[in-house]
Amino acid sequence: MSFSWRRVRAILRKELRDYRRNRFVIGTMAAVPVLFIILPTIQLIAANATNKALTLRIGLSLLYMLVIPVTMPSVVCAYAVVGEREQGTLEPVLSTPVRREEFLIAKALAAFVPTLVIAYAVFGIFLAIAALFAHPVIVSAIFMGSHVLVQFLFTPLLAGWAIWVGIAVSTRSTDVRVAQQLSVLGSLPPLVIVALMSLNVISESTALAIGLAAALLAFDLLAWRVVAAMFDRERLVIGGRG
């Protein structure tokens, strides 16, 4: 049997319906962006153009934006497998013709799509607020090509990494809370590189941004292969006894 996008859509649709009625997921999806837009916005509006630490402030503000695609999917994806197991739905799902690739891609898309929408929306709101209320010098610094490029490139790539880490942890966990804590921790390392760029510790350039993005893309693809290999129907059903 070949790969079926219909089966992917079935899980994706189910996940999105489930999110809509899950207070925890709605809470996470609402609270994280609100938290990460208030602080940087206040910081920028309060800053003046002569502030010596202006570059650092802008870097820090933009870094907040990138915490969204890291934390949000890792929290949601940590639930992907262990959550299904806890509510007893994993075995019925695995008893259908669904292939592991279909299951994993559906679970990943269910976290990826809302994350991307929310992260870009928050960044857009941040840019709009900055353009309207911040000092023109700050605005031009924020709208500098590489800043925007870093946001657009790294948002999906960091989300991808966080998603695969979250699902990997979820396939091996027996407890949702532990899975969430571990997956948030595991999703942070790539953020360090981006942080070093945003804070100008590593000299920021378009070439460097693209190079690091390519490396992160390679890690994402590798992570997908690793997670697919870890997804063992038998072990998931018997709960690790095998």
Partner: peptide
């Protein structure tokens, strides 16, 4: 695709309606 298994625990998505649960599985069976 040619069999069905009903485990001891019903294993339903509790935040989904009866129809939505069945729609999901109809999709999984293509």
């Amino acid at each position: 695709s040619r069999i069905s298994m009903m485990p001891e625990s019903p294993g339903l998505y509790v935040r989904l309606t009866v129809t939505e649960n069945l729609q999901c599985f109809a999709g999984l069976y293509d």
